[in-house]
Design a protein around this nucleic acid. Sequence first.
DNA 1: GTCTATAGTGCGATAGAC
DNA 2: GTCTATCGCACTATAGAC
Lengths: 176, 176
Amino acid sequence: MRAAALELFEEQGYEQATVAGIAERAGVTERTFYRYFADKREVLFAGSQRLEQSLVAGIAAAPDGSNTAALVDAALTALAANFTPQQQAFARRRSAVLGANPALRERELLKLASLKAATIAAFTDRGTDEGRSILAAEVTLSVFHIAFTRWIAGAEQREFADLQREALAELRSVLG
Amino acid sequence: MRAAALELFEEQGYEQATVAGIAERAGVTERTFYRYFADKREVLFAGSQRLEQSLVAGIAAAPDGSNTAALVDAALTALAANFTPQQQAFARRRSAVLGANPALRERELLKLASLKAATIAAFTDRGTDEGRSILAAEVTLSVFHIAFTRWIAGAEQREFADLQREALAELRSVLG
DNA sequence: GTCTATAGTGCGATAGAC
DNA sequence: GTCTATCGCACTATAGAC
């Protein structure tokens, strides 16, 4: 259904494409679509829960005694694993659709907010105090976001993890 | 209409309240409601454009030769002017409605993203370079957001500007 | 100011897996 | 038998078109 939806959004635009049309292309009924996705937008965000889980798991699985920087590193590594070269084309197409529609960007921001909350919780679960956890989550997601933006953009060929390392280095240099 | 909508949302919940009901209470037709507000959610965000304008104007009106910190200060002062004690009760009721509904928080995040973009632009217009502008906007809105949260919360009686000063001091101390 | 498309929900029916 | 996935249909409300 995700592929069918993306195709239809590209062909007709997000608003114009109907749930009935998506369902038809995917070979199911409209009602079934709503069994899988709470609403029309969700079909483009089905992967975000998995992303959140892997991020949280990555932080939880970091070695005992890791300091905050090491936990951030573990979080970034866990995130990067979700973005292989095979997924780049799909991610780009999805990103183009998202960028063209405010309602979809709205949903994206909500997912990012949820990701941030989960990240903060994952840091506090590792014994990081709350203020520090908030900052750590902020840094983690800023780096991730910058890397993701570049990974999506133009003719970027480097691996996701490399882009994250670069973004982290830049962040450090900006903070002096 | 904003008052009518807020009352109805409190009485019936956001989802249950219909645009027809809001329009009726405000003494207009449904069609008129949609002339003023693009959709049902927007009735709770009518003030955000004014907030954005005052923030941008505040940065633009700061003295010549202001450094980034001074511009941030001007931005915070301009923001604080929008939150007088008279508006606190309304803001609290609005916040309660927002907190109870994901669709409304979604819209709130979009408005915050728009505010951030406008803030970045206002900083670059003052000659701040882009990277620094992004950080300045981030700091400004973080401080604002923390202050706003506390202003809304519980039995907070201090003035908005004081809460912002406190939040800014905390941010400084966290960054060491 | 009316008319219409379509998003989204509730409930019950059906069909296959185990 | 139970469980789960899918479907069909009726319905409301939002939002846009004319």
